[in-house]
Design a protein around this nucleic acid. Structure first.
Length: 736
DNA sequence: CAGAGACTCGAGGAG
DNA sequence: CGAGTCTCTG
């Protein structure tokens, strides 16, 4: 029984218990991947299960790749037939086969967040709703939440009847969905939602997959949302062999619909479920683990779990108070530099933060010290303008119904098709229930656009040519080279000859080489396959443990990873926990922040560093913060504070007090409204009085209002009319 | 129609 | 501070 060798008794239990529902509660660093891979190997090798009858769902493509590799090592050949993928890739694979049953065609486009926002803007414009009252990101969030909960536009409308705002939201949601359909496009949420719909309305399809997948495994179960839960339960209903792995203490995606109840209620949802707890930690030192345990016990409603380890005690946690973000970055980088000089590898260090915006200063300092680093998560490669442009061409080639992408490139590079022309074409298309490409492709309809007709026709021909090219070319790489030439995209950039343009060309080159990689590795080369891969790849999927570089990423991205040395930076009230979670006033949203903290702490194997700054730049100005409550939740005896320097020593107490962003805003507003102007400006006149100005002469004071540290005085002068003057500058004298 | 410059407003986390 | 939008001019 070599497969059970080296596993602890709980892990063995998780491997052997193959039939029926099983919940593996796996604490951080408890060897769950090991248990999972051995379980799969056991199914194949010992139980004779066909690999293609196993579905394993992971959180990232990277995890999927690793799982497949490790199973391959255990069973020899055969792992390639297991479906190991993320929820999204699995669903896209299913939809490619049967989405026609739902009225889409199989060449559908997958829209990213930017595309979604653009589409919502169109909806708002069409419905004549103000972006002020309906902020795009808010609308997007609302729609996304509905989709995560499997609520379609009709249902949403029903639920919001009589609610003024709700009814408007319903209208937007409805139109948004209609547009997606007419563009033959799915957003991320649709990928899951449409698969569930497919299963619901076409039981034959469901039955096929139910029969196929005899064993189902879901990793990171605490982060599944309602739609994903539904999907899994539908698939598992036939064989009931469902094994989920998760840790309720690491549930950090509530904001994108993850439903922590899924894991808490597993035993209720699946009758006769067994539960195995993996509580021995193999990753961290006792100090780190104790810190993690003390932090997380401040949360309520958890599944009881107690992580322990046989590892060494380890170093104390290093806590450092910094002046500002530069000081903080300097400390972090200097510490890394010091250790690197002692022979420690760069890749042993991870610097984690709450928000992506924090990465820039860290980068600056790493560059200054010539320390190699890998930054994850800021702007995704595929979100760059030039890449999205090329992508838009590829999307239109494959799916000419994609009006959104077509509009993006119809005049890129410039070919004299302006906004007016485009809206005319759009109008015509809408009136005749046509897609834009249909309108411009048809000789008869296109000729109605006067002078612009020739240019539109030329563009339609270009797309036509590229489509033919796509059919002929053997590789995506080849198609892309052709596209770059024929569209003139490359030439335009070359002619520009600026630093920025060269940068863009560089990015495009990288994109082409990614296509070449795809050509080389794909089982079957297809444009659809390439676009799908691009749409579903996560930044973190490109993380390569081999690169000797310091890792910079958000706490969210760090989930599932481990590093010998971990820095958690920006431990300030309002930053971590975020001010959004504080001001929401809901305890569960602070608890989610705490879980995120827990995730961060448990990434560390050997040593943990915590830092916070008294001040930080925000929107170009200095904002003052108070130390995070999360620091106080750590037992004092685990901490070693560097240079015990009272945080408030160097700063007036009053400034430190106004810590969180929200308060800062209120403070700003108060400055403007109530706080009297500084003593050095005092006015000896009031509204209605006469004043004298050195140039405008004598006038009547209409209004006096506060403007920051000064007064704004509105005065009407007989000769010059009404003027708004700053009292501090205008030197107004009262006339008695 | 295109480009430059002024202007406003707003920041969380991710596939 | 910086992205995105608006407005003006050639």
């Amino acid at each position: 029984m070599s497969l059970l060798e080296g596993l602890n008794s709980k892990q063995k239990e998780a491997v052997l218990c193959t039939e029926g529902p099983l919940l593996i509660l796996a604490g951080a660093g408890s060897g769950k991947t090991r248990a999972l891979t051995h379980r799969i190997a056991y199914l194949i090798k010992e139980k004779g299960v066909d690999p293609w009858r196993i579905l394993a769902i992971t959180f990232t493509n990277k995890a999927a790749r690793e799982m497949r590799e490790r199973v391959d090592l255990l069973v020899g050949e055969g792992a390639e037939d297991i479906w190991v993928s993320t929820f999204h890739s699995a669903c896209v694979r299913i939809l490619r086969n049967d989405i026609e049953k739902l009225g889409y065609n199989r060449y559908f486009t997958i829209y990213d967040t930017d595309d979604q926002k653009a589409l919502i803007k169109e909806c708002l414009k069409e419905l004549n709703y103000n972006e002020k009252n309906f902020p795009v990101s808010g609308v997007l969030g609302e729609i996304s939440r509905q989709k995560d909960e499997l609520i379609n536009p009709a249902e949403y409308e029903k639920r919001n009847q009589g609610d003024y705002r709700g009814e408007k939201y319903a209208k937007i949601y409805k139109l948004y969905q209609k547009k997606l359909e007419s563009n033959n496009a799915l957003d991320f949420d649709d990928i899951i939602l449409k698969t569930v719909e497919l299963f619901k309305f076409h039981p034959d399809v469901l039955e096929y997959y139910q029969n196929k997948f005899q064993y189902i495994l879901v990793d990171e179960y605490q982060d599944t949302n309602t739609a994903q839960y539904k999907l899994v339960s539908l698939l598992a209903a036939a064989h009931n062999n469902i094994c989920v792995v998760g840790d309720d203490d690491q549930s950090i995606y509530g904001w994108r619909g993850a439903n922590i109840r899924n894991i808490l209620d597993f035993e209720k949802d699946f009758k006769n479920a067994r539960v195995v707890k993996l509580e021995q930690n193999y990753r961290s030192t006792k100090v780190i683990l104790e810190a993690a345990n003390s932090v997380i016990k401040n949360n309520y409603g958890r599944k009881q779990k107690n992580l322990w380890t046989e590892n060494e005690q380890g170093d104390l946690i290093e806590l450092k108070c910094c002046m500002d973000e530069h000081d903080e970055a300097e400390y972090v980088v200097r510490e890394i530099d010091k250790q690197a000089k002692e022979g420690r590898a760069y890749k042993d260090f991870a610097v984690l933060y709450r928000t992506n915006a924090q990465s820039r200063v860290l980068e600056e300092h790493l560059v200054r010290y010539s320390i190699p680093y890998r930054l994850f998560g800021s702007i995704r490669f595929y979100e760059r303008k030039e890449i999205k442009d090329i992508l838009a061409y590829l999307r239109v080639i494959l799916n000419p119904n994609d009006d959104l992408s077509l509009k993006r490139i119809i005049n890129v590079p410039k070919r004299g098709i302006g906004a007016t022309t485009i809206s005319k074409v759009e109008e015509f298309a809408a009136a005749n229930h046509m897609n834009l490409y249909e309108v411009i492709r048809d000789r008869e309809t296109v000729s109605m656009f006067g002078r612009a007709a020739a240019k539109l026709k030329e563009f339609a021909d270009l797309i036509g040519t590229l489509q033919a090219e796509a059919v002929q070319s053997k590789s995506i790489c080849e198609l892309m080279e052709e596209l770059l030439i024929r569209t003139g995209y490359l030439k335009e950039l070359e002619d520009e000859n600026t630093e920025e343009a060269r940068d863009r060309i560089q990015n495009i080159r990288e994109f082409v080489s990614k296509a070449a990689d795809y050509d080389k590795n794909a089982e079957e080369i297809s444009l659809a396959g390439f676009l799908e891969e691009v749409a579903l790849v996560a930044d973190i999927d490109n993380y390569n443990e081999g690169d000797n570089a310091v890792v910079l990423m958000t706490l969210h991205s760090a989930k599932g990873l481990e590093f010998p040395f971990v820095f958690i930076t920006g431990l300030e009230e309002g930053l971590f926990p975020s001010y959004m979670s504080i001001q929401s006033g809901r305890e569960d949203s602070i608890e989610e922040e705490r879980r995120l903290y827990y995730v961060g702490i448990t990434r560390a194997k050997k040593k943990l560093y915590l830092t916070y700054a008294n001040a930080r730049s925000f929107r170009g100005e200095r904002v003052y913060y108070r130390v995070s409550r999360f620091i106080e939740e750590l037992p004092k005896e685990l901490i070693k504070q560097e240079e015990v320097k009272k945080s408030s020593d160097s700063l007036p107490e009053m400034r430190v007090k106004n810590a969180i962003w929200q308060q800062h805003k209120a403070y700003e507003a108060a400055l403007k409204k109530e706080i009297p102007a500084p003593q050095n400006i005092s006015l000896d006149f009031k509204e209605g009085d006469l004043v004298k100005h050195f140039k405008f002469g004598i006038g009547t004071v209409e209004k006096i209002s506060h403007a920051g540290a000064d007064y704004e005085v509105t005065v009407t002068f007989p000769k010059y009319g009404q003027k708004k003057l700053m009292a501090g500058l205008a030197n107004l004298k009262a006339v008695h």
